[in-house]
Design a binder for these strands. Structure first.
Lengths: 225, 225
DNA sequence: ATATATTTTTAGATTAGTCTAAAATTTTGT
DNA sequence: ACAAAATTTTAGACTAATCTAAAAATATAT
C-alpha cells in the first residue's frame, strides 16, 4: 500500500536487529543471534545482511556484526509500533490473554497502511504501553521513556508496581497468571531464601506468594512515587 | 499459524476463482480472466493452475478453464469470510469509508488464526453482510442467502431498498456517496429517459436524484416486504 | 603464540512465483 | 469448413529467500 520498497522478510530482520540491539544496550548483533531469532541459518543471514547494507538500512562490517542506520531504525520502529498496537487490540478489544497474542501480532505487524495504523491507535485511545508493558513508539518513532528495574534488584520491603516482563513466552506468562501477578499489581519482597534464592512476595498488600529467582529476574517493576 | 500448507498467493487465486465463478453463475473461469484479476500474465496463471490442480483445489482441464473443488471452495470461503469481517471492522469500528477499505482488507484476509477470526466475528456482533452488502460466510463456509435484483430490472414506481453494489471501485462508491445513496436507503424509479437511459429516482421518499444507466445496473436492491 | 574451535562468509543449489517468446489449441468469421 | 484471430500452454529464464558444504576469519585455550 504505502510502500513496496521493503519486503515482509526485510522488515522482520530490521525489527529483530532493533530488539536485539536494545537488549544488548546498543552493541552490535551477531549473525548467529540473528539466525536463531529469524529461524534460519547463518548463511542465509549473511546474504540478507549484505542486501540490507546495500539498501543502507544497517551498518555492516563483515564478521563484526550489525547495527541499524537511522533509516533502518525508522522502519523497525514502525513495525514494532504496529506489533504493539495490535497486541493492545487483541487483549483490550478481543479479550485474548497476554500469552496468546504474540504469533498473531507477528502477522499483523506487516499490514501496510499508514491510515489504518493511525485509526487503530486512536480507536485504542493512543496507548503508550502494550499488554506486556513494552513501550509503543509514536507515529514518528519516538518511544515513551521507561525506567523499569528487575524485581531481583529491589531491596527487601520496598513496595513496587509491576510494570512489565522481560520474557514473553506463553509458559512464563501463564505462570504469572496462575500466581495472579498482573501488570499494575503491587509487589513487596519480604524475604529471599538462602537455600534456593526464591522470593516471598507480598502481593497487593494481601497475599504472600512464592516465586523462583528466575521469575523475579524477569519481572520489571518501578518504585511507587 | 493454523496451517502452513497453502501460500498467500494460492489463497488469492482460490478467492478470485470463487468470486469470478460466482459472477459467471458457476461457469468455468478462464486463464485470461484470472491473469487480469491477479495482475499477472496468462503464462503465470497456467503454472499456478497446474499447481492448484495437483493439490486438488481446482478442477482443471487444459484450455477449458477451472472451477473449485469442495476443498478449494472451503479455502476460498475462509478467505472471503476474513476479508468481509475485516471490512466491517474497518468501517464500523475505525470509521473508514466503504471506498477506502478494499486494499487493506486484501492484506488482512490472509492473517491466519482461527481464534482471531472467531473473536473478531463476535466483537463485530456476528455480522451477516459487509459494508458493500456482500454476504459473509459463517465459520463453516455457509453463505447467508441473498436475492438481490439490479435496480435496472425493477419496474417503474416500485419502492425498493438499497442492499448492495456489484462494483466496488472507489470511484463508483464515492459517486454514490455524493448522491447520498447508501445501504438501506429507499429507492423508487420514477422515469427512465428515452434519450440516454438515465434514471430519475425518488430517494428516501424525499429528493429526486438522477443516475446513469451504468449506475442503475450496479445498484443491488430488494423489494420491500 | 599458535593450534584448535567457533563464527561468519562464500559458492553453488533449490523453491515459489513471476516473466517473455514460441508453440499448441480453441474460437471466430466468412 | 477452414483460415485467421484469440487464447492458453510450454519452454526457458529471472528474483527473492532459503539451504548445505566448504572456505575464510576471528576467538580461545593452554
Amino acid at each position: 500500500m504505502d510502500n513496496q520498497l521493503i519486503s515482509f522478510t526485510e522488515e522482520n530482520y530490521l525489527k529483530i536487529i532493533y530488539l536485539l540491539t536494545e537488549r544488548h544496550n546498543g552493541n552490535e548483533v551477531s549473525t548467529n543471534q540473528l539466525a536463531e531469532h529469524t529461524q534460519t541459518k547463518a548463511a542465509s543471514v549473511s546474504d540478507m545482511l549484505r542486501k540490507l547494507a546495500e539498501k543502507n538500512y544497517i551498518n555492516y562490517r563483515k564478521y563484526q556484526g550489525v547495527t541499524l542506520t537511522a533509516a533502518g531504525e525508522q522502519i523497525a520502529l514502525g513495525v514494532i509500533r504496529k506489533h504493539r498496537l495490535w497486541e493492545v487490540f487483541l487483549v483490550e478489544k478481543l479479550g485474548f490473554g497476554w500469552d496468546e497474542i504474540h504469533d498473531i501480532a507477528e502477522q499483523l505487524e506487516h499490514i501496510d497502511s499508514k491510515e489504518l495504523t493511525k485509526r487503530l491507535d486512536n480507536f485504542l485511545g493512543n496507548p503508550q504501553f502494550d499488554p506486556h508493558g513494552d513501550p509503543i513508539p509514536d507515529a514518528k518513532g519516538k518511544m515513551p521513556s521507561v525506567s523499569y528495574l528487575k524485581l531481583s534488584e529491589i531491596p527487601l520491603n520496598q513496595s513496587v508496581v509491576m510494570m512489565g516482563v522481560s520474557v514473553h513466552s506463553p509458559a512464563f506468562l501463564q505462570h504469572l497468571d496462575k500466581q495472579q501477578i498482573t501488570l499494575g499489581c503491587d509487589l513487596k519482597v519480604l524475604e529471599i531464601s538462602d537455600f534456593d534464592k526464591s522470593y516471598s512476595i507480598l502481593l497487593d498488600g494481601k497475599n504472600t506468594i512464592f516465586v523462583s529467582n528466575e521469575v523475579a529476574k524477569n519481572l520489571l517493576v518501578s518504585i511507587e512515587e
